[in-house]
Simulated scan of single mutants.
Amino acid sequence: MTQVRMYTTAVCPYCQRAKALLHKRGVQHIEEIRVDLDHQARLHMMETTGRRTVPQIFIGATHVGGCDDLYALDAQGGLLPLLGEGQNS
């Protein structure tokens, strides 16, 4: 399964929803980058994505976007194929 990385904060309901969907789709490990604890990580997130809100989700090298983007991708049938890329846990 492809690596999943997510920029999050401690008290973000959208982060929790996104993690729940990813777990439901078989993701066992999500690399969380807490931007509420690391100002440089927040700056890097904003430079990389052009967005200020969390979560910001990456599956492999693909920036999926936020929680709504993740759910839309899943509804279109695009999430599972993206997660299956690479097969390197």
Rank of each mutant, 00 (worst) to 15 (best):
L83Q: 12
L82Q: 04
I57E: 01
D74N: 09
E32R: 05
S89T: 10
P55Q: 11
Q56C: 05
G50A: 06
T48R: 04
R25W: 04
R51M: 14
V11S: 13
E32Q: 03
R5S: 11
M1C: 07
G77D: 00
C12D: 04
L22H: 02
A41Q: 13
E47R: 08
G66E: 02
M46P: 02
L82W: 08
R52K: 14
Q76M: 07
G77P: 01
H29D: 11
R17N: 15
L73M: 15
G86P: 08
K24C: 08
V54Q: 05
L73E: 12
G84H: 12
G78V: 12
Q16T: 15
K24P: 00
E47N: 05
T49W: 08
G77N: 01
R51H: 13
P13R: 11
V11F: 15
A20R: 09
A72E: 12
M6H: 07
C67P: 01
L73T: 13
T2P: 11
L21E: 03
V11H: 15
T48L: 12
V4K: 00
F58A: 01
I33F: 07
A41F: 12
H44T: 12
D68F: 12
I33H: 05
P81Q: 12
T9K: 09
M46I: 14
R17I: 07
T2C: 03
Y71N: 04
R17K: 15
T8V: 10
G50F: 03
H63A: 04
L82E: 06
D68V: 14
T9F: 08
D36T: 07
L37E: 15
Q56M: 06
D68H: 12
Q3R: 14
